[in-house]
Design a binder for these strands. Sequence first.
DNA 1: CTTTCATTTGAACAATTGTTCATGTGTTCG
DNA 2: CGAACACATGAACAATTGTTCAAATGAAAG
Lengths: 119, 119
Amino acid sequence: MKDHTVECCEKTELHEDLLCRVREQMPPEEDLLDLAELFKVFGDTTRIRILFVLFEAEVCVCDLAEALRMTQSAVSHQLALLKRSKLVKSRREGKSVFYSLADEHVRSIIAQGMEHIEE
Amino acid sequence: MKDHTVECCEKTELHEDLLCRVREQMPPEEDLLDLAELFKVFGDTTRIRILFVLFEAEVCVCDLAEALRMTQSAVSHQLALLKRSKLVKSRREGKSVFYSLADEHVRSIIAQGMEHIEE
DNA sequence: CTTTCATTTGAACAATTGTTCATGTGTTCG
DNA sequence: CGAACACATGAACAATTGTTCAAATGAAAG
């Protein structure tokens, strides 16, 4: 980071006002990091495809791997990530582990994204 | 990709059903890529901070750089990315270029994300 | 036209990320 | 117990990404 202290645009009064409002409204650094972290999770087609499968049903890792034609390992890694972000939850049933959506935010966030790209 | 053709879980009937529904509901590859691309844009604190400033007002690059204490170059690169994703729009006024939100999807997507992390 | 200011752009670099491969854990069944 | 199955995990690798630096536009003023 450098030269970010330049005065510019010659409107010092409006600056003060804006900078105040920004500092008030800007969430704390920790929230910004969490927020970015959350959206990063949605920023990968593999994980989005996993979520679309989970929109339909609760499924085990092995079914997910088959449905998406990927290795179980790759799917498992992504599921672990999705779980850390609390987007999915898991439940063991014998040898299998079943995954499902953790809450409805997932659906609405994806839906909003879909609306945006369909323009 | 390998060994993704394994039969598993011994419930072949449910498989058929699930696989059918998944294939029906799953958006085309191109949409999945666009969707991931969109969320990647939200997956970075710099860009989220830029958007939070734009929630407050229409601002020029130089003001953004000052508000966020970053170089104009870094901010400009990110603004270009935000513009390519149609999340912000720009308007030239003399020497300055003013940026603002392109539509209200931005606000609601960020809002949904905020709701999710505050749990 | 030249200078200056505001912004953009390209190349380069370090840092992050997704997949693969190999191995480890946990569960069931014989 | 030991074998087989479903899944998780760690290390390694290629690919992608964000910032910086340097140089290039674009617009206004002298």
